[in-house]
Design a protein around this nucleic acid. Structure first.
Lengths: 217, 217
DNA sequence: ACCTGAACACCGTTCAAGT
DNA sequence: ACCTGAACACCGTTCAAGT
C-alpha cells in the first residue's frame, strides 16, 4: 500500500540469499525488512526471526545491532520521527510569511501528509506497547513539536487571531484532533462515516480546516 | 490504578489454587484475570498461559472457552463496549430534555467518563492489533454510536444551533477529538502539555466544551 | 568485528486421556 | 461436559564457536 521506506532497497532484501560473511549494512537492511514485513503481514506478525530470515541472516544476528525486539521497532519509530520532522519543517518553511494560526495549520497539514504517506511509520510510532517511547529520543522530539504548537497558538492569541478561550487548550485540541483523525483512517474507520472517500487526505485537511475556522476570531 | 472489573472478584482469582475439577465459571474468571494482568503487567504481557496460571487451571483449559488469544481479548473488548454503552445511555437519559448539541456534548462526556474510569478497557478496545474488531459485535456497535452522533449533529444544524459547515464533519471532528484526547491521556502525554492536572477528566471535558462552543452558532 | 547455530525458557494451540 | 498434561511449532534472547 505505502511506498518503500528508502529510495533504493538493499541488495539482500530481494536478491539471492548469498550468505556472505559480512552483510555490509545489516542494520539498515533489518529496518527496511521490518517495515516491509509490517506492510505485508501486520505489526503483530513481526518477529525478529522472521526479519532475520527475510534478510538472510541467522536468528541471532539482529541482536548484534538491536538488543531487543523493542529496540528494533523503536529504531523504526525513530526513522519515522525523522520523516515527520522533515515534513513539518518543509511545511513550515513554505508558510514562513504567514500568521501564527496559518503556521499552525501548515504544521497540521505536514503531520497529515506524513501520516497518510507513511501509514506503517505512523502505526509503529503510535503503538506505545511495542516501542520504548520514554527511553528513546522520541519523547524529547515529540515534546519539541508540542512546544512549537503551543507557542503558535499563544502567538495567535496575542495577535488577536483567536476567539476567546485558553490557547493551549486549542493547541491540545488540534493535536488530539489530528491524532484521532489519523488513527481513525489507519484503523479503517473512514468508510463507515459518510466521509466522501475521494481522497482521504483531502477530506482530513477539510475537517482540520473547519476546526481552524471555528477557533478563529 | 483503575478499579476491578466486576463488583466481586471470583473465588479462585485470589483464593487458594484448590485445583477443583470443575471451575464453576472459568470463562468469567479468565476475563477478570486478563483485565487484572493488563493492569499490573501491561497488555503485551498477557499470555493465555499466564492467565490460566493466575486462575489456577492448565495451559490448555482457556481454549475450551476462547478459541484463540485474540478471542479472549476480543471478549474483554466486548465487555468494555457493554460498559461504554451503559455510560452513554445514562448520560443521554440525563440530557433527554436538552437540544441536539447538548445531547452530543452529553454523549461525549459519557465517553470520557467511561474511558477515564476504565483505562484498561479503553486500551484493549482501541488496540486493533490485538482484537478482532471486524469479526465481532464491535464493528456494528461502534457504528451504532457513530450514527447517533452524526444524527445529533444534523439535528443541531437543522435547529440552527451550529455555525455554517458540514455537520457530519463536525461529528467526525468531535469523535476524533475525543478519541485523541483519551489516547493522549492513556499514553501519558498530558503531563508534558501544560494541562493542569488537577483532574484530567475535568480538563478533558473543558477542552471538549471549548470545541462545542467553537462550533456553536 | 561480525555472524552462525545450538541452546534455553518461553508462547499459542492441539488433542488424547482422564474425571 | 470440562479439565489435565504432554506435545508441536513457534519466539526472544544468549553465547560459544567460527571467519
Amino acid at each position: 500500500m505505502s511506498r518503500p521506506s528508502t529510495p533504493a532497497a538493499k541488495a539482500s532484501v530481494g536478491g539471492p540469499p548469498g550468505r556472505r560473511y559480512h552483510h555490509g549494512n545489516l542494520r539498515q537492511a533489518l529496518l527496511e525488512a521490518t517495515v516491509q514485513l509490517i506492510e505485508t503481514q501486520g505489526l503483530d506478525q513481526v518477529s525478529v526471526r522472521a526479519v532475520a530470515k527475510m534478510v538472510g541472516v541467522s536468528p541471532g544476528a539482529p541482536f548484534r545491532h538491536f538488543p531487543t525486539r523493542t529496540a528494533l521497532l523503536t529504531a523504526v519509530a525513530e526513522q519515522a520521527m525523522d520523516r515527520l520532522r522533515e515534513e513539518i519543517d518543509k511545511a513550515l518553511a513554505a508558510a514562513a510569511g504567514e500568521n501564527a494560526l496559518m503556521r499552525y495549520r501548515a504544521l497540521g497539514i505536514g503531520f497529515f501528509t506524513w501520516a497518510f504517506g507513511n501509514p506503517v511509520h505512523f502505526q509503529v510510532i503510535s503503538t506505545r506497547a511495542v516501542i520504548d517511547f520514554e527511553g528513546s529520543s522520541l519523547r524529547a522530539r515529540n515534546d519539541e513539536i508540542r512546544a512549537v504548537m503551543a507557542d503558535m497558538m499563544r502567538d495567535a492569541q496575542a495577535a488577536g487571531l483567536l476567539r476567546r478561550g485558553d490557547p493551549v487548550r486549542y493547541a491540545v485540541a488540534g493535536r488530539a484532533l489530528g491524532y484521532g483523525l489519523a488513527r481513525m483512517y489507519i484503523d479503517g474507520q473512514f468508510p463507515s462515516w459518510d466521509v466522501e472517500d475521494l481522497n482521504p487526505l483531502q477530506e482530513v485537511i477539510g475537517i482540520f480546516d473547519q476546526f481552524i475556522a471555528s477557533i478563529a476570531a
